[in-house]
Design a protein around this nucleic acid. Structure first.
Length: 289
DNA sequence: CTCAGTGTTCAGTG
DNA sequence: TCACTGAACACTGA
C-alpha cells in the first residue's frame, strides 16, 4: 500500500526490528523483473553477514544502510511491502528456485504463515527475527546501489513531501514552467517525491484547486494553499500510520472509493471522477476552481 | 467475466 | 529538445 505514508511506516517498522542487527542469512526469489535481471546470488552475496546500520527513505523509495556497500534499495510499486516476522526458531527455508519455473509463481512451502505468497526476499536477522519483502503484482523493484541518494532513480527525485517542503516562492517558480495539469505535476516524482494518486486528490481538494488547471496558471495564493495542503495531508497520513489515528472526517478520502454515481463529500459536495494525468481523479467542482 | 487499481517506464506524438 | 499521453507490466478483488 505504498504512497509516502506507507513507506514511512515500513521504514519505522524495519528500523525498530533491524537497526544494529546483522543479516545472518538471505533468501532471494529468482525473479528477473523485481530484481531487474540481477542474479539472486549477487544479492545474497551483497547482504549476507552485513550489519544494518540504518534505514532511509526519500519519497516512496526505501533503502538500507549497511556496513559495506552496495546497499539494497526498495520501491514497493503498487502492491509491495515489508513485513517483520517474529522469531520462529531455526526456520527451514525452501530451496532457491531455478530459472525454469514461471518467475511470478507464488513461493510455496514457507514455514511460517505470513506472507505465504509472492515473497521476493527474506532476511534472517541475528536475533532470529525475519524481514520479508513480498509483492504480488511485481511492479516493485529491489536494486543494489553503492550510493543510493546520488544515483538514479533516487537522485532524480524532487523534494520529499514529508521532510523537505520548499518555500512557496520556490514551488511557484517550478510550477510556473509546467503546462501540464497540476494533478499530473503532483504525481511527478521529480517534482514532489512521495505524492501518489489519492494524496494528490486530497491535497487539491483541501487547497480548493481544480486538478485539471495547468500548473502555470496557479496564483501565488493557490500555490501557498497547495503547499499547506501537502504538509497537512502527508503529515496527518503519516501520523495515522504510526499511531492508528483516524483520518479527519471532512476528508475527500472517505468517499473517493466506491465511485458510485452521485458520490458526495462529507460536506455534501458532489464528487466528479475524471482521468487526469492518466489516473482516476476524484474532485468536487463546486469548491475546486 | 470484466475492469479498475495506493506506481513507474518507455514509445509515440506534437 | 522538451513535454505530455497512453500502453504495458502482473495480479487481486469488486
Amino acid at each position: 500500500m505504498p504512497e509516502l505514508p506507507e513507506v514511512e511506516a515500513a521504514r519505522v517498522l524495519a528500523t525498530r526490528a533491524a537497526r544494529g542487527r546483522r543479516i545472518a542469512r538471505v533468501w532471494c526469489a529468482d525473479d528477473p523483473i523485481v530484481f531487474e535481471r540481477v542474479p539472486a546470488q549477487k544479492f545474497r552475496r551483497a547482504l549476507t553477514g552485513r550489519r544494518i546500520e540504518d534505514l532511509h527513505r526519500h519519497g516512496k523509495h526505501l533503502w538500507f544502510e549497511l556496513d559495506r556497500r552496495p546497499w539494497p534499495c526498495f520501491h514497493f510499486g503498487m502492491s509491495g511491502g515489508i513485513h517483520v516476522i517474529a522469531n520462529v526458531g531455526a526456520p527451514k527455508w525452501p530451496p532457491h528456485p531455478q530459472r525454469s519455473g514461471r518467475p511470478g509463481k507464488p513461493v510455496a512451502a514457507l514455514d511460517h504463515p505470513w506472507p505465504p505468497r509472492f515473497t521476493k526476499l527474506r532476511l534472517l536477522l541475528d536475533d532470529g527475527n525475519e524481514l520479508v519483502y513480498a509483492d504480488a503484482r511485481r511492479l516493485g523493484r529491489i536494486r543494489l546501489r553503492d550510493d543510493p541518494s546520488s544515483e538514479p532513480p533516487i537522485s532524480l527525485l524532487g523534494f520529499d513531501a514529508l521532510v523537505a517542503l520548499p518555500s512557496t516562492a520556490a514551488m511557484a517558480d517550478v510550477l510556473g514552467g509546467r503546462a501540464a495539469p497540476i494533478k499530473a505535476v503532483l504525481l511527478d516524482q521529480s517534482f514532489s517525491a512521495g505524492v501518489g494518486n489519492w494524496i494528490a486528490d486530497e491535497v487539491l481538494y483541501q487547497a480548493r484547486v481544480a486538478p485539471n488547471r495547468p500548473a502555470r496558471t496557479l496564483s501565488r495564493d493557490e500555490v501557498s494553499r497547495l503547499r499547506a495542503a501537502i504538509r497537512t495531508v502527508i503529515g496527518t497520513a503519516v501520523r495515522v500510520g504510526a499511531d492508528g489515528d483516524r483520518f479527519p472526517r471532512t476528508w475527500l478520502f472517505h468517499n473517493r472509493w466506491g465511485k458510485a454515481a452521485g458520490a458526495i463529500t462529507p460536506r455534501g459536495e458532489r464528487i466528479r471522477f475524471d482521468t487526469i494525468g492518466g489516473r482516476t481523479t476524484a474532485w468536487a467542482p463546486s469548491v475546486q476552481k
